[in-house]
Design a binder for these strands. Structure first.
Lengths: 219, 219
DNA sequence: ATTAGGTTTTAGCTATGGCTAAATATTTAT
DNA sequence: ATAAATATTTAGCCATAGCTAAAACCTAAT
């Protein structure tokens, strides 16, 4: 079965909005993320449900099926390989690539993607640090380290927290840290283990050894 | 103004079917070339006429406008640059590239094409020997020589004839030569100037000095 | 338990770009 | 010059994928 451009975009978005939690992805979330009206989304969800790539129960959000995951991962693989190409070969900066990669990811040709992968030296991560699924949809999970353990001037991305208490998350939120944020360690204070980090190249924050120990970084 | 995928394909086809002669390109020719029904073509011609990229007089075929040429050349430029990329960087053979390039040529991004051009070293011809228009639509015309003048084992493409009488063209047609055919000189007979050529790697034909002198080759 | 507010779906419209079948125009052959 | 053949266009249909407005549904507060 072949998905249209629009269908590929939907399934990719649904996959990416899917949380570990068991609640389905809501129509409104998809609508907001894709900048389409909820009515249009409803319509498409019905179609995607008929095609078997999502489980769709009216009013209760959608869950992606195994079949659907295959399509999502295939599209994500293409998108990220093209992003590598644009940045490494055509000197695009990493914020310029999104629009173009979003078009390129819909080109249909297994051979093309296989050759592109080979040409790029089988990269495992895209310029944003996100993993590139292999041909079979397998994703290499990048090892995570605590923010305490990484070196001065090292960069990474916040991928998880050890302590997920409301208090801790509220604190992170207040200082501007969040899952997905890009960070760089710009100061390590030896005597108390506290550090200073730069978030998204915009804002610097201090944090204690305790806090840093609870933040997991993907290098 | 932005043309849709379908519109881009039509205008490209019309440009390529346009002959030096003053008769317009017919609905049937376009229909045959694009493998669409004549009725669909008629409909699109009306739309393209409204957009000003072609001159459309019902029942009398279409002529491309200067505006239209710009779009056609831009699409052809993209197509041929992608073909060079596929063949030179991704090791596609020159007959595999058409389908993929036909999809890639519709990606919208001036920057992308400029960078790709640069990355490929500003190529002037695609893998089929066809010229790549520059950013302003200018095409480098490749020098043409008479088939008499090229060396044994040299290859080239038939691009024109000096004698365009019906008799001569009918003769060429009969032996299987045509504008666009790839040829290779496989025998040169010194004493009468006749030659033997291989057409499209498929068929060999003999021709007299006279005939060869009236065929123009692009090396 | 009912209602208000937010979310989601349905119904009906639009545009694009195909199609078939029928009508019409042009060209060719008698 | 007219009839037959060919080419082209029109009319009306289908699918995709968006939209607005109205209806239906869910949830949370009274």
């Amino acid at each position: 079965m072949k998905l249209s451009f629009a269908e590929e975009n939907y399934i990719k978005t649904i996959y990416q909005l899917t949380d570990a939690g068991k609640k389905g992805v809501s129509t409104n979330d998809i609508s907001a993320s894709m900048k389409l009206k909820p009515a249009s989304v409803s319509d498409m969800l019905r179609k995607l449900g008929d095609k078997g790539v999502i489980d769709y129960r009216k009013y209760y959000g959608v869950h992606i099926t195994e079949e659907g995951k295959k399509y999502a991962l295939s599209t994500i693989r293409k998108q990220r390989l093209w992003e590598v190409f644009l940045v490494e070969k055509l000197r695009f900066s990493w914020d310029e690539v999104v629009d173009v990669a979003d078009e390129l990811e819909h080109i249909q040709s297994t051979v093309l993607i296989r050759r592109l992968d080979e040409y790029l030296g089988f990269p495992k991560f895209d310029p944003h640090g996100d993993p590139i699924p292999d041909e079979y949809g397998d994703v290499r999970v990048r090892p995570r380290v605590s923010l305490n353990e990484i070196d001065l001037n090292a960069t990474g991305q916040i991928v998880a927290v050890k302590d997920s208490s409301a208090a801790f998350l509220r604190y992170l939120d207040k200082v501007g840290a969040y899952i997905g944020a890009r960070i760089k360690v710009i100061e390590k204070v030896e005597f108390d283990g506290s550090i200073e980090i730069l978030i998204d190249n915009k804002k610097t924050i201090f944090m204690s050894k305790d806090v840093a120990g609870n933040i997991l970084i993907m290098v």
